[in-house]
């Protein structure tokens, strides 16, 4: 049946709907540029969702654990071999995503007899010197969205993902109203947690609901903190070694947030 173009388009549409359904409960992940680097933040119940990829690259992912693991290992493998064969300075997130990961995701998504990747990824890359940070969202179909700065879009020093599009939209509009590039780590943690709360509320809200007010977001965050663990990591500009990734402990973050 798939020889007919219309059937193929229909099969792809069904597949997209299926994957979106699977991803829908995915808890938001927030990445924010701040004074000392980049902070990645989420709350999780069961699995780790924030990972180190290379010296200046971190990953947050939602989706099926098996697929996330394969994509994570692939990203580490590609970055490590590039860094070994040439130099750590030649490892670039944009190339990693455009050249290697996106084609692999697209191929798996469109080969309708094979399994697609049930995954949505958020990469963050710490800018070198005065270069801006790069936040890159990579979806199950291989599509890429970055934080702009070129291509006639305003540069945004953040990146977010969540299970549903309206949660992503709400977090983005919440963050566009904030100035955070000069904040300290503690203030950035507060902002990231509030953003997460806005996104998490949107997962269970109507698609066109208004942004929740600050008190509602704060209340929701406290409820969720009671039975989830905090996951946070930073890419630090002035790290002592070339590897800039550092995971923050749950109690360290909790002490700041509560």
């Amino acid at each position: 049946m798939h020889e007919e173009p219309f059937r193929w388009v229909e099969a792809i549409a069904n597949r997209r709907e299926y994957i979106e359904d699977q991803l829908a409960p995915g808890s938001p992940i927030v990445a924010l540029g701040f004074r000392d680097g980049i902070l990645l933040f989420t709350l999780s119940r069961e699995r780790q969702k924030i990972f180190e990829i290379y010296d200046r690259i971190a990953l947050g992912g939602i989706g099926h654990p098996g697929d996330l693991e394969r994509l994570r290992l692939t990203a580490i493998e590609l970055a490590s071999t590039e860094g070994f064969a040439r130099s750590a300075d030649d490892v670039a997130l944009r190339r990693l995503a455009n050249y290697s990961l996106s084609p692999a995701l697209k191929a798996a998504f469109e080969q309708i007899y094979g399994p697609p990747f049930l995954a949505r990824l958020l990469f963050a890359e710490l800018g070198r010197g005065a270069a801006p940070n790069l936040f890159l969202r990579l979806d199950y179909d291989g599509s890429i969205r970055t934080n702009g700065g070129s291509f006639a879009r305003t540069f945004e020093d953040f990146g977010v993902i969540a299970g549903k599009q309206n949660a992503i939209t709400q977090m983005e509009s919440f963050l566009r109203a904030q100035k955070h590039s000069g904040l300290s780590l503690a203030d950035t943690l507060h902002l990231a947690a509030r953003t997460w709360s806005v996104g998490h509320l949107a997962l269970s809200a109507e698609p066109d609901a208004a942004l929740p007010d600050a008190a509602r977001a704060e209340e929701h965050l406290r409820e969720q903190l009671a039975h989830a663990s905090v996951e946070a990591a930073v890419l630090e500009k002035d790290a002592p070694l070339a590897a800039t990734y550092r995971a923050l402990a749950d109690d360290e973050v909790r002490a700041i947030l509560l």
């Binding site: 394969r70 290992l73 692939t74 493998e77 590609l78 490590s80 071999t81 070994f84 290697s100």
Partner: peptide, 17 residues
Amino acid sequence: TPAALSGNGPTDFPGIL
């Protein structure tokens, strides 16, 4: 092709190289 994508390639770094 990255070893990790096939799911049955080497998992140690010298093997990856």
